[in-house]
Design a protein around this nucleic acid. Structure first.
Lengths: 247, 247
DNA sequence: AAGACGACTTGATCTAGATCAAGTTTGAAT
DNA sequence: ATTCAAACTTGATCTAGATCAAGTCGTCTT
């Protein structure tokens, strides 16, 4: 793993950046902002250099000062709890904000690392909230994105408790698929950026169970999976498992 | 259960209200706002009539328009997932905001009901965000409270996955205790407003397991529990279970 | 191309907690 | 006070998934 200081050094900004040219602008913070106001937001945004798998963005406990928007690539946030167990709290796709749960405690509550080649946009939180004061549309969108994270976290909570491992995993694939589709990628065919171990940790099960259930999904022709490339072959069956209509 | 319309009728506002006189003002939205600005916030706040156990505040799927601050009493939010299973997503204590996860989808994502005698403060969300534009301190606090909810939800997630039922339940009692203490109530002696069933649903286990583990905690002199009144008798042992230092 | 270390899979066994099935207690309503 | 239904407890059994233990495969390094 790359050290924090190394990671930070590697995140020198590129010179040119423009939210208006970014493919995520209709999903990310700029959504709803007038074109002439967009410049003000762009002045706050510091794009990162290209990051690689295992590069660390920030560590749990670091003083909170910035939020990050995913421009491309995938990230995971992991948290070590009071008992010393590490859990994958969330995966982050392009257009999503990272670090918002650090606002309240004024420190990051989880560590975030890149899972593949990725680029971030860095925003100083103080400056962002200040700008929100004069751009109602920006304030609105920031609150919307925070609310979405809260909603996603609550849903994950609900679908993790109780449920069988099959259903959790079906729900996870379904969720990933929707998020890819929302971003204009294929809903049925994508590459998992995370390891089986990461998936297991996120869903509260063991990697062995993840492996066995993916295999059973494949045998039942619900998915086709080859290493980390997955094809959702039978959406109806997958949804039926999520909806508890199928064992 | 009282119907939505009944509940709404029962929530006629009281005439007088003042955040400055509310005992939760240093925990709730008013935190950090100048005294002369506080009036503007107070004009937005509509206090509810006294609510009683099982009164419904809003239902999952209702159009989002208001957020609610708990003035007194306890609430639970429950969500029915795609599979038709109901889960307790969160419990809400005085000074906490309810409904924030409805901002993004523009509808409430869970149903909220009172667990005991309680009073709410109702705030129109549009008016609230508008006021945030002119009161930076209010904007800051709203974002902080949203962030706190996100953090709490993530932690719940992490501590629910994986863990033994003993640890989940110890963590739950620890969390409740901290929140009571933060509000100036006793950290070691309180009454559970929620049923064993609700606790079980929130933690992803069965009521039988909750019952058995509470009994074992009592036998080990970690807690003393009589119906819904609980005394945390051995904080060190409880913390040790949360920290996985004790079976 | 060889080596080596993770990542992943597969199988055998074990157990925490679910499920099923009665009880018992509690507190609200008559 | 009595009744009743819901909340809670207790016990017996069962099972999904954890754990333990070898494997095999993939990919990065040299």
């Amino acid at each position: 793993m790359i050290s924090l200081s190394q990671a930070q050094t590697s995140m020198q900004s590129h010179d040119s950046h423009s939210c208006s040219k970014c493919s995520m602008s209709q999903i990310c913070l700029p959504l709803g902002i007038e074109k002439n106001d967009l410049e003000k937001l762009e002045q706050l945004v510091q794009p990162s250099a290209t990051l690689h798998a295992n590069d660390v963005v920030f560590r749990q406990g670091d003083v909170f000062s910035k939020v990050y928007a995913v421009k491309s690539g995938t990230f995971k946030s992991t948290r070590v709890d009071e008992g010393g167990n590490e859990h994958v709290v969330a995966f982050h796709l392009p257009g999503e904000l990272i670090g918002l749960d650090g606002i309240y405690p004024d420190e990051y509550t989880s560590s975030t690392t890149a899972l593949d080649t990725a680029v971030l946009c860095e925003l100083n939180y103080e400056n962002l909230t200040e700008l929100c004061g004069s751009l109602p549309a920006l304030q609105k969108q920031l609150l919307r994105l925070l609310s979405r994270d809260l909603y996603e976290s609550n849903v994950t909570n609900a679908s993790m408790a109780d449920q069988t491992a099959r259903r959790k995993l079906a729900g996870f694939l379904h969720n990933l698929s929707s998020r890819y589709q929302f971003r204009g990628y294929s809903a049925d065919s994508f590459t998992l950026a995370m390891s089986r171990q990461d998936i297991a940790s996120h869903l509260g099960m063991t990697p062995e169970t993840v492996s066995r259930i993916l295999k059973s999904f494949k045998q039942e022709a619900i998915i086709n999976i080859e290493n980390r490339h997955i094809v959702l072959a039978d959406r109806a069956k997958l949804d039926a498992i999520v909806a508890c209509e199928l064992a």
